[in-house]
């Protein structure tokens, strides 16, 4: 086994000659640092991204009216009526559209124009619970109540139908 002892001694001495005593700490440190920085590289984020844009550069949900990313929902705060038996502009059966509402504008990426969108709530049944969407473009704080989407606008609907069910995004005009 003397050859094995000689080999071990030789390689240990070779390592001791080549490296300093603290080089292990240094290399371990840079390895840990490198491992922690690796996920920040763009290549890693690109591979793990859930949504890859379509060839025209838009999110795959941009054309789905029942997706929160759809342009008309840019100021909505509630359940999308399209997921609750109604549509983007109509209430599900058994509910009533509140006459009083809040109005904002949304930019349509397809024709580049601003549209006036009225976010009428549908009232009279308990909360739908599907497709919650909370986007707050042009939404104002509660102390400017006329343009705040945090209100339950069902309190302005007729009779006692004050239960909130879902929200619509009705286009009522072109802003520019």
């Amino acid at each position: 086994m003397s050859w094995f002892d000689a080999l071990t001694e030789g390689s240990a001495r070779a390592i001791a000659r080549r490296t300093s005593r603290r080089s292990f700490l240094g290399s371990l440190g840079s390895m840990l640092m490198g491992a922690s920085v690796l996920p920040l590289l763009p290549i890693a984020r690109g591979a793990s991204a859930a949504e890859n844009p379509t060839p025209d550069g838009k999110s795959p949900n941009a054309n789905d009216p029942n997706a929160c990313e759809y342009w008309r929902h840019c100021g909505i705060d509630g359940f999308l009526c399209g997921c609750c038996g109604g549509s983007t502009s109509s209430c599900p059966p058994g509910t009533e559209m509140s006459a009083i509402t809040w109005v904002g504008t949304c930019h349509n990426p397809d024709d580049g124009r601003m549209y006036v969108v009225s976010y009428n709530d549908c009232c009279g049944k308990s909360a739908c619970g599907r497709c919650l969407c909370n986007r707050n473009e042009r939404d104002t704080p509660l102390y400017i109540p006329f343009q705040s989407n945090d209100y339950d606008w069902c309190s302005g609907s007729s009779e006692a139908n004050i239960a909130y069910h879902c929200s619509t995004s009705r286009i009522v005009g072109v802003a520019n």
Partner: peptide, 26 residues
């Protein structure tokens, strides 16, 4: 915006599109 658009954005939500409001409320 034009005044007609400002009406939609600032007033119409409660006063309704033709200004008739909601009886007993607006």
């Amino acid at each position: 915006f034009e005044p007609s658009v400002n009406y939609m954005l600032q007033c119409m939500g409660c006063h309704t599109p033709d200004g008739s409001g909601a009886a007993g409320r607006v």
